[in-house]
Each structure stands twice: as C-alpha cells, then as structure tokens.
C-alpha cells in the first residue's frame, strides 16, 4: 500500500533546479531506497517532503491526501518523520532527553489520534518510561542514556536521531545517510533494525551511500541524478541499468567537470 507519493515534484533555488519533475512512491511495510551521487538532490527531496523547502511545482501525497501546503510541524503530525544528513541532535541534552523530547512533543498533539503504528515492542505503551526504555534498548543506547549527545561520536548521534524520530511514531520515516559513521558490524545490526521496523508496517525512504546495505534492505530503488529520477526498480534491475552506471562512474553524456562523479555542491 502506498503511504507517501511524490507527483512530479520540482524544487528551484533561484536559477538552479535542484529537483526536477521527480515522482516517487514509498510503500508501507517496505524500505524504499533513494540513491544518487552527491549533489543529486536527495536531501532537497527530503526537505520538500517534510515541508522545510517549498516545492516550485508538483505535489506531495500522504495516504492519498495532498499535504503540499501544510507546514513542517503539521506534516510531522500527519505521520512524516525524518533524520538529517548533517546532524540536528539536541546537543545540550542527554541521549535519554533527546528521545524524551520526541515523546513529549508527540504526546502534546497525538492525544486524540487513532492508533499509531506499533513497529517496536513497548512503543505506544501508556507509560513514557516503558516506551523510552524500549527505544533505548532496541538501539543499544542504554549505557549512554545519560551522556550529553554533543559529546557522542557521529554514528551514535545518528542512532539518537533515529530514536527521537521513532518516539514521534511516524507512518513514514525518511532516513538521510543513517549508516555513515557506523562500522561494519553496527551497519549489519542497523540493517536488521530497518527490516524489523518495516515488517511491522513502517514505510521507510532511505538515502544511503553504503551500497551493500541498500542492496540488502531495499525492495525498490529510485536513482536521482542532477535532480531527475533516472531509474526505478528492484535493486537488481537498478544495478544493471546503464544510465545509473554512467551517473556513478561519470562516463555518460553529462560528465561533470573535474573528477569523475563530481557534481555541484548540494543545495541545502
């Protein structure tokens, strides 16, 4: 079932078309991958989905409803959660408090809402402490619970961001390079976590450069290059696609100046 859909979305920054006529579907209960070289417009697409940048044309649909004109916090309340490529943790708060803020903000608006997805044991428990413990345990952050997040290494800070996003219990989760900063073992465990979350109904849109991880967890992949979707399909199909190969290796018709694969700096 499609939870999130982009209909020919474009985002323009002055004269630069960062995302051009991109269409994309995210299914509930599955991990969908969004890959592409640096500067392809992946983060801008995320920003447009959650209302941080306004699209210049096109629509964003959540559960079939047009949410293009809703503000960021309204979209969050409708069920869109995300993490950030450049970390946006609450550096002065502890790990537990970061996740608590997520819980508390959600509790401030979700009282009247119907049942939310239940993709983690203990999530949705009436006691906030049980919920918090469930998230900390699943993300293996129990030992760090009282550490200020400002002092954590990047990989763990990313997990805190994920925990915080989960605490708001979204129906679609946008993850922006969540595995950068994790070592091989941690990445494996992280892949298991994504599959577990998806198997309980969460729709995940994953931007990630770790190709083995993407190939393992994603059921569908979209490839973005210079703001356009150049390929879409199963991981195997995408891997065999020539346009994708040329985008990544720089041998195609639009070679970037300078080093292979180089592309303009991604507009934030």
């Amino acid at each position: 079932m499609t939870v999130l859909e982009l209909e020919s979305l474009s985002v323009r920054f002055g004269g630069h078309l960062a995302v051009s006529d991109a269409s994309l579907r995210v299914e509930g209960g599955r991990v969908t991958g969004l890959i592409g070289p640096n500067g392809a417009g992946k983060t801008t697409t995320f920003n447009a989905i959650c209302g941080v940048v306004p699209p210049s044309s096109g629509r964003v649909l959540l559960d079939g409803k047009d949410i293009s004109s809703a503000g960021t916090h309204q979209r969050a309340r409708l069920g869109i959660g995300r993490t950030f490529q450049r970390l946006e943790v609450f550096g002065s708060l502890s790990v537990a408090d970061n996740i608590r803020v997520g819980q508390e903000i959600r509790r401030s608006w979700s009282r009247r809402k119907a049942a939310l997805p239940q993709y983690l044991d203990g999530l949705g428990d009436p006691s906030p402490d049980v919920e918090l413990a469930a998230i900390l345990t699943r993300l293996d952050l129990v030992a760090l619970a009282d550490q200020p997040v400002g002092a954590l290494p990047t990989g763990q800070a990313r997990l805190v961001e994920l925990g915080r996003a989960l605490a708001a219990r979204p129906s679609v989760l946008l993850l922006d390079e969540p595995a950068s900063g994790l070592d091989e073992q941690e990445t494996d465990a992280f892949g298991d976590l994504l599959l577990q979350l998806a198997s309980h109904g969460l729709g995940i849109l994953l931007v990630e450069h770790d190709v083995p991880l993407v190939m393992r967890v994603c059921e569908r992949l979209s490839v973005l290059d210079f703001g356009q979707i150049i390929a879409e399909g199963t991981p195997a199909e995408v891997r065999a696609n020539e346009a994708v190969l040329s985008a990544y290796l720089g041998t195609g018709p639009t070679p970037a100046p300078g080093a292979p694969g180089a592309a303009p700096v991604e507009a934030q």
């Binding site: 959650c50 969050a76 997520g102 708001a168």
Partner: peptide
Amino acid sequence: KDSPVACATLGL
C-alpha cells in the same frame, strides 16, 4: 534552541 528544524519535524 539546539535545533528548531528537528523540533518542527517532530510536530512542534
């Protein structure tokens, strides 16, 4: 204060 944008994406 630390991150307004993160708060907004949590529904604040």
